[in-house]
Design a protein around this nucleic acid. Structure first.
Lengths: 356, 356
DNA sequence: CTGAAAGCGCTTACAG
DNA sequence: CTGAAAGCGCTTACAG
């Protein structure tokens, strides 16, 4: 056990413990000479501040809480890893806490965790980020928090988000550019607000291209592979099936892909299928999924950055605390030109050029 | 902020802080009357001990570390949730730390975390549980640890495990009972020791039934869906394909399933496919996968139980610190009777009876 | 720019 | 069975 304390360092460096404390915490007002001398001793002795002592006296925990509705998803894993890594870099610790969004007592649970762990900040992953009951708890506790991909009330906290609507629009435009005119869309879990945003992006692109949307080809899923299987069948087994399907996440897209294969449809020759997320599954499937890469790890890291920023407590309204991150359309093999026989001519579309 | 301290409770209850401390920590030697009185005050005031103060003075952190090679898998998520939940019940906290098993400096990273966080105990999930370098670090730090599903050196720590070999044997016997004689097997990542154990179970069952194993039908995968797709193709596209495939985990089984569908094979009419793990995917696939349910959450919970047991530090060799948990063969739709035309007669098999 | 004193809220010996 | 004293290792005011 490292019995080395701040006292040992102070003695050895010939300064007071307070000065060592200043150096450790990067405070100003320390002569460079002294600073360097202290740092050298810290290094020599391999001194590590005792986090408990520090927390006890400063009444800060250096502990951030990440609240996640369903921690078993790939999305959650990516968020978690991103937050964890950045916390480590910032000398903070992260506690991941599952919080069932349907639990009637979720507010009490959250309050208890915040108090028991004496968190210094909280991160709310979707869809918890849109649960007003939880925001109220955090406000009441006067705890700084950051929301990832929230839908409404942007003034209530710092935010980290990407433009889901624009991404969905762009993906749809890509399909349209490939010559598709009848595009099926599978919405995500209505409990997640991003579901509506992605759908809006899809509708906007269709409208901008003056393409009619077949309401029978717009279905509501739940982000799970199962709904991709079922709804994919509904979409593709019918005689007037769409030539492309845009699923609101990769898991559902994979379900559609499996269904297409089962129905004997070639992908993308007979039907193009695209997803959203760039989950590991998207890369593994055969053919690999064209999808939207969401910067999940970066979003989580950015949330940590906001929370540890000393200015954050002061003015959560500042534009610098609304972090917008970019997405990326990842082109792979699951989407291609619309089947020639089905391209509707005279819609103002250029004849699709091969090679993407 | 709850400014209520042990002092407030002591004053209000008319006892010393030491007595309150005793009650809180469930120590003996407190008169029941006094005990009850203190507890009542604790309740009234909604008093919560300050974990930092407690840790600082007791030099215990009440913090357990869970080390995982790849935290983005479904397996990791289940382990994590199980450990987290039990920690909460035991008033401990859990820190999940990803630790790349291939990192050359993984020993240093581990040592640093143990020291910086002042962990009270560590849990090593596979395949880290079999990394001697890491065990050495923990031994040197004199930190109690528990390994989940380790392969060797059972005397070095408490263990939580299930009988992978027996489970694989039983699953194979199930396929044999269904009339299958030519069964393909896809081994897991050779870097995980369970891979070899599951294979042993498969071989044992085949040998016990006096069935020959076609070496061309025993392939090595890596636990990812991609290898299921590739190896599934290798197995099923050949003219003398097996009538059943046993993949060492569900992800690979799903890959085989997708390949089968793509090849136009009916599952299970043409080929039966079974997995291992009972991952969420296993339930979602169509048809749903017959698989082995591994008690992942319970294993993690059991690991926590060992670590917080005060007797654990004393004698890790005691048989009570080697926790064996049961598995379950989950019968679903992906496995069925062997195609009649291909059943090899006269091998001592009863004619398969329908209805499973 | 630097330091001496007090205190954070518990638990650990040590008494009785 | 119960308590008074000291201390865990830091940081927070407060001085200078």
């Amino acid at each position: 056990m490292s019995a080395i304390t701040i006292k040992d360092v102070a003695t050895r460096a010939g300064v007071s413990t307070k000065t060592v404390s200043r150096v450790i915490n990067g405070e100003r007002h320390v002569r460079p000479q002294v600073r360097d001398a202290v740092l050298r001793v810290v290094d020599d002795l391999d001194y590590r501040p005792n986090a408990f002592a520090r927390s006890l006296s400063s009444s800060r925990s250096y502990l951030l809480g990440l609240f996640i509705d369903d921690p078993t998803t790939g999305y959650a894993a990516d968020i978690q890893l991103g937050a964890l890594t950045r916390c480590r870099e910032r000398s903070y610790h992260l506690v991941v806490e599952p919080l069932d969004r349907t639990a009637p007592d979720r507010a009490d649970i959250l309050a208890k965790i915040v108090r028991d762990l004496r968190l210094d900040g909280a991160i709310l992953a979707p869809p918890l980020c849109d649960d007003v009951v939880l925001l109220d708890v955090l406000d009441a506790a006067n705890l700084p928090y950051v929301r990832i991909s929230p839908h409404g009330e942007p003034e209530r906290s710092g935010l980290v988000f990407m433009d889901d609507e624009a991404a969905a629009r762009e993906m749809t435009e890509h399909l349209i550019a490939l010559g598709h005119t009848d595009i099926g869309f599978i919405e995500g879990d209505p409990g997640h607000n991003v579901s509506a945003e992605r759908k809006r992006g899809f509708m906007a692109a269709m409208a901008a291209a003056a393409l009619p949307v077949n309401t029978a080809h717009v279905l509501v899923g739940d982000f799970n592979i199962r709904s991709g299987l079922t709804l994919g069948d509904q979409l593709l087994a019918a005689p007037n099936r769409p030539t492309a399907v845009f699923a609101s996440n990769d898991e559902m897209a994979l379900g559609v892909l499996i269904t297409a294969i089962r129905l004997g449809l070639a992908v993308p020759a007979d039907v193009s299928i695209v997803g959203f997320d760039d989950a590991p599954l998207a890369r593994a499937a055969w053919p690999r999924l064209t999808t939207v890469r969401q910067p999940k790890a970066q979003m989580a890291a950015a949330a940590v950055d906001l929370l540890v920023d000393p200015r954050y407590r002061g003015d959560i309204q500042a534009p610098e605390f609304k972090t917008l991150l970019g997405y990326e359309i990842v082109l792979r093999e699951s989407a291609g030109l619309a089947p020639v026989s089905r391209v509707v001519a005279g819609e103002g579309l250029e004849p699709p050029t091969p090679g993407l």
